[in-house]
Amino acid sequence: MWRTICGSVRGAIHVRNGKPNQDSIKCRISERGEYGIMAVADGHGSGKCFRSDLGSKIAVDTAIELLEKIVQQSKGANHSFIKDLIESKLPGTLVSQWKKRVDEDYRTRGFSDLSRGEDSLSFEAGFAESEIAPAEIHVAYGTTLLASVVTSRYIAGIQIGDGEILVVSEDGSVERPIPKDERLFANETTSLCSEHAIADFRFFFERLSGITPAILLLTTDGYANSFKDEAGFLKVGTDILKMIKVEGPKYVEENLENWLDEASKRGSGDDITLGILYRQEIMERVE
């Protein structure tokens, strides 16, 4: 039975600069906990991406809806069919749905409400709204997206842009199921708003037979960047597993945002979001 713990904090730099938390997170657990879905998104902080807090929210909402639809519609389907749905069909649908919802949001809000605000300065103010190209609207809402689904039969994930997905086994070993994308360097990232977004998605899919991961972590890049080295970041997986087992999920839930806040203050200064999908059975074994 799958359960979730979620936390998201505004970065120390954003607190100093008066900017909002541009990360978003959303989780969905089925009624009986047979499957769990989680999505995390990191809205870009650059001046042209001044609606990215909304862009990231639209991204996680869309991802959860579409992944849940896939889970429900593919019950009993073979693994290769589901893998194909996730890797071949989902990115296109996700990108087009995200852009459609962004366009709707823009039609409701426009950019004129920003004309007196600080953000308009970032958006190369000075042209009429009628001159704004659709691509520029999408850039204003630009965001990364990571999403994962775990059922009794398979575990899968999709990712565009930076951020991390970690799979933790019951023995505490931590794996990164999606290999690093060498293009994500310094502060540049692939994005839902880019022209080639569909091709920029990366995936993992694993059928589960017997051995099921203990926990799954999804984080925005602000967390990994807060550790002195990679080993320090990967240790998060082992430690969270141990804390859930020993102290219990309530303890982790109550402390999570304090931990993330501390990591941002002493580390990257960026917004940090961490989603945890854990299997309730890992608790019962300890008891």
Binding site: S226, W259, G267, S268
Partner: peptide, 12 residues
Amino acid sequence: MPLPGGELASRP
């Protein structure tokens, strides 16, 4: 109780 993960550090 310590924070999860290894040593935190600002970015050089």
